[in-house]
């Protein structure tokens, strides 16, 4: 079976029509479903948070069969993810797409568990520390996209689980947990 790095590709990745946007409704629905699943799976295993439509993205072309997705097809598949809440356009021109292989709510739950597991219920951390500190190493929070992290923290803030405050240095914010 073909692989992309350590990612195992399904057989149909070598099926040329998989790379052409199908016009017939039933066929297209199935095709879109398969692409959505594959994109989420791949991004989760490879820790990819943002897909740029105009940049090379390994999944969007298959050199073995010499096929690649058209811009229209890329946008169609990502839009399908956006409409399900599994992705968000980062700009109006739909050039960059944020992939949410965990929904924001799920990310909030992960942070909650991370804080509990590490006994950080009442401590203070910087946002940067959550992303790249020793505690988060080996967890899904490691090198998490900053935009997603902030969104998840705001969800928790609204529930009164923590407070976000401006840090001493302008480029980083602090988080005071109170769980």
């Amino acid at each position: 079976m073909q692989k992309l790095g350590d990612f195992k590709l399904p057989h149909f990745f070598n099926y040329p029509p998989y790379f052409t946007l199908q016009p017939v409704r039933d066929t297209r629905e199935k095709q879109v479903q398969l692409w959505k699943d594959l994109i989420l799976d791949y991004c989760r295993t490879q820790k990819i948070f943002v897909i740029g439509l105009e940049e090379d993205f390994a999944l969007f072309s298959n050199p073995v069969i010499e096929r690649s997705l058209s811009h229209e097809a890329r946008e169609a598949f990502l839009s399908a993810l956006v409409s399900e809440g599994r992705a968000e356009w980062l700009d109006k021109g739909h050039r960059k797409c944020l992939i949410l292989w965990h929904r924001v709510q799920d990310w909030a739950d992960i942070i909650f568990r991370f804080v509990k597991d590490n006994g950080l219920e009442d401590s203070v951390m910087t946002v940067e520390e959550i992303r790249s500190g020793i505690e988060s190493r080996g967890t899904e929070l490691h090198v998490i996209d900053r935009t997603i992290l902030m969104r998840a923290l705001r969800v928790l803030e609204q529930k009164g689980k923590l407070a976000i405050f401006k840090g001493t240095s302008a480029d980083d914010e602090g988080v005071k947990f109170s769980m």
């Binding site: 149909f12 099926y15 029509p17 790379f19 052409t20 066929t27 398969l34 699943d37 594959l38 096929r67």
Partner: peptide, 30 residues
């Protein structure tokens, strides 16, 4: 349009393949 075939548009041209999409299991793509 009846779902028997599906298309492949590439620099090689416009070709038709037997439609395999219904055969693929979405719960286990492998």
């Amino acid at each position: 349009s009846k779902g028997l075939l599906c298309r492949d548009i590439s620099p090689d041209g416009f070709r038709f393949y037997i439609n395999l999409f219904p055969e693929i299991n979405t719960d286990d793509v492998y």
